[in-house]
Write a protein that binds this DNA or RNA. Structure first.
Lengths: 206, 206
DNA sequence: GATTATGTACCGACCGGTTGGTACAGAGCT
DNA sequence: AGCTCTGTACCAACCGGTCGGTACATAATC
């Protein structure tokens, strides 16, 4: 029973967890090292043993978020081979809607927030963020191309362009939900996005 | 020829101009009072003569931005009675695209940036921002309702929902353009948005 | 009309607190 | 002993904000 009932995770993880939590709602600049230290219960010397700067901590967090997003959010929606590609995209929409509901419209999209905060003032973050959004978009493009191949999506549409639009619209929807604090905004946008997809879809579905 | 070739604007305007410029690219937290003071050439004592806090400066800037947006960006696109309502919306899309091009994809949307940065940590800003986005949306809703009335928009669509989606998508498009620094992203999204509108449009258009 | 007050506009020094970051001594394990 | 960790004291720079004071135009007083 030393001091507190702390989780026995290694300090590095503890820092990462705390910082992720804080930066998700307060942003990069809005979260101080001291905040992170207090939240994680880790000393300053220890922090600088694992990270050589706040910037590097930011990179580490972003990398982890990105990995989690790609592997635990994006991939699962597209993994199941028993669904049509367009349905996979719709399923992904729903998973994002659900995550916003669970978070009570707080925090928004970590990557989107960082993009808004740092794109114009920090090239390193900007490049990393561009990479994620590109990979995300590519996943969409891929699915849309498949849909074209199996005839559920009209050949008239450009998968790459449509993918760009879908990602952007989702980010915008998350942002507007974060401001208004009304989950219906997200629901509406997801619904409209599905309609947009249906615009290009042939009647071949279900 | 005293000291420098200064503009003769009142100090308050000078502060507002400088702060707006700085905060548009660096955000609210990323812009310090000293930065604003140096940029505007105004002394600190004078600053606190006009504004009682940095927060109040932020409010003043946002208010001015909002007013400018409503009067000089939104209203003009919808003023001309010689166009159909759907064309007015499309014209507004184009004006946003153009402004992003002029800014070289830097800065993004001032209101969107502030929304992302402060919505979860500052209720005052959140409320003001919700108000602007609502007014923006209402302008869209209004036009869409008119379009329904004159038969260019199908009765099947819900103007309020569609308006929500259009605003959100535009914000997302601006954000993605800011990250990627590629104006084509904005062009693509605007194009897709027009297609989305066309989805609900009857063939009555020109 | 000279003098005394008053209000506005302005400045830069300074304040306490916080920032990101460092130095370093020690603890615990192998 | 020698390595990996960890806590603490400390730093300069910077943060938003306060302070005392100045310059000057106008108004009130005699």
């Amino acid at each position: 029973m030393t001091t507190a009932a702390k989780t026995d995770k290694p300090a590095r993880e503890q820092i990462l967890d705390a910082a992720t939590r804080l930066m998700h709602v307060s942003g990069y600049r809005g979260t101080s090292l001291d905040d992170v230290l207090k939240e994680s219960g880790v000393g300053k010397g220890n922090f600088y043993y694992y990270f050589k700067s706040k910037e590097e901590l930011g990179y580490a967090i972003l990398d982890r978020i990105v990995q989690g997003f790609l592997e635990r959010t994006l991939a699962p929606s597209f993994a199941d081979p028993s669904h049509a590609p367009l349905e996979k995209i719709q399923r992904f929409f729903d998973s994002i809607l659900e995550s916003q509901r669970q978070r009570n419209c707080v925090g928004g999209c970590f990557m989107g927030n960082l993009a808004s905060e740092l794109s114009d003032v920090h090239e390193g973050f900007r490049r990393r963020l561009t990479d994620v959004f590109t990979r995300w978009r590519e996943k969409f493009t891929e699915a849309l191309t498949h849909a074209q191949a199996d005839g559920t999506l009209t050949a008239a549409c450009d998968p790459a362009r449509l993918a760009h639009f879908l990602v952007a619209s989702l980010e915008g929807a998350i942002l507007m939900t974060k401001v208004t604090k009304e989950i219906q905004v997200m629901e509406t946008c997801v619904g409209e996005l599905k309609a947009h997809l249906a615009l290009y879809a042939t009647g071949a579905q279900s």
